[in-house]
Simulated scan of single mutants.
Amino acid sequence: MTSIALSLPNANATRKLGNFLGRSLPAGTVLLLEGNLGSGKTTLVQGIGEGLGIVEAIASPTFTLVNEYLEGRIPLYHLDLYRLEPSEVAALYLESYWDELENPLGIVAIEWAERLEQRPSDYLQIRLTGAETSDRQVYLKGIGQPPIRLSELLAMYEPI
């Protein structure tokens, strides 16, 4: 398992990393996002949407649970589990977003993934620390066999 840490000095850097991920990640990528309130999870997903060419405004689906954006390079499925208990999450059958049985493969970005008991076998774990008003750190870790290796992915990334 490869693990990489990056410093993100501000929200623009977080968004830029997301934009890069949106342009680079293949269909079938699952991103499990963890971090406190204000750590940049939604900002990162907004950048991913920009990188995918999605023009619709991306907002956190805290109350809708899932927002689907189908007009980009590949679909983006943005999920937010903040309001749910782990037992409630299990009843949602979220596997349908990464097993291609019901939805076309895309990028699945799940905020508050620590509430997800049933995880896919292959994913990128993204943990953000810090807050909007201070430097953030992002830790990326490949679990299983993600569709792209972190070392290959980040070799193409040019930080701010």
Rank of each mutant, 00 (worst) to 15 (best):
Gly35Asp: 12
Ala11Ile: 11
Gly22Trp: 07
Asn10Ile: 02
Leu37Ala: 04
Ser24Ile: 00
Phe20Glu: 06
Pro61Thr: 04
Gly47Thr: 12
Asn19Trp: 08
Ser39Met: 07
Gly18Phe: 01
Ser39Trp: 01
Val30Ala: 14
Pro26Ile: 10
Asn12Lys: 09
Leu44Tyr: 00
Phe20Ile: 13
Thr43Ile: 14
Leu37Met: 15
Lys16Thr: 10
Thr62Leu: 00
Gly28Cys: 06
Leu17Pro: 05
Ser39Glu: 06
Thr29Leu: 10
Gly53Lys: 06
Thr29Phe: 08
Leu21Ile: 03
Val55His: 14
Ser24Cys: 09
Asn10Glu: 11
Gly49Arg: 06
Lys41Asp: 01
Gly22Lys: 08
Gly28Met: 03
Ser60Glu: 08
Gln46Ala: 02
Val30Ser: 12
Gly47Asp: 12
Thr62Trp: 00
Lys16Arg: 14
Ala11Asn: 02
Val30His: 08
Leu21Phe: 06
Arg23His: 06
Gly38Glu: 02
Lys16Gln: 15
Leu37Phe: 13
Thr42Ser: 11
Leu52Thr: 10
Glu50Val: 12
Leu31Gly: 02
Val55Ser: 14
Lys16Ile: 02
Asn19Glu: 15
Ala27Arg: 13
Gly47Leu: 10
Asn12Thr: 12
Gly51Asn: 05
Ser39Ala: 15
Asn10Thr: 04
Leu25Thr: 08
Lys41Trp: 01
Ile54Glu: 09
Leu32Trp: 05
Leu21Asn: 03
Gly40Gln: 09
Thr14Lys: 05
Ala59Phe: 12
Thr62Pro: 01
Val45Phe: 02
Ala59Ser: 15
Thr43Lys: 00
Glu50Pro: 00
Thr42Asp: 01
Thr62Tyr: 00
Thr14Arg: 05
Asn10Gln: 06
Arg15Ile: 14
Gly40Met: 10
Gly28Phe: 01
Ser24Glu: 15
Lys16Tyr: 07
Gly35His: 11
Glu50Tyr: 11
Gly35Gln: 13
Gly40Asn: 11
Gly35Pro: 11
Pro26Trp: 12
Glu56Val: 13
Lys41Ser: 01
Leu44Ala: 07
Leu21Ala: 07
Ala57Gly: 05
Thr29Ser: 15
Gly40Asp: 11
Gly53Tyr: 07
Leu32Phe: 08
Gly47Tyr: 03
Val55Asp: 13
Asn12Trp: 07
Leu32Lys: 03
Ala11Thr: 13
Glu50Gly: 00
Leu31Phe: 03
Ile48Asp: 05
Phe63His: 04
Thr62Asp: 00
Ile54Lys: 05
Gly28Asn: 06
Leu25Phe: 08
Asn36Leu: 09
Ile48Thr: 08
Leu32Ser: 07
Pro61Trp: 06
Pro26Met: 11
Pro26Glu: 13
Gly35Tyr: 09
Ala57Gln: 14
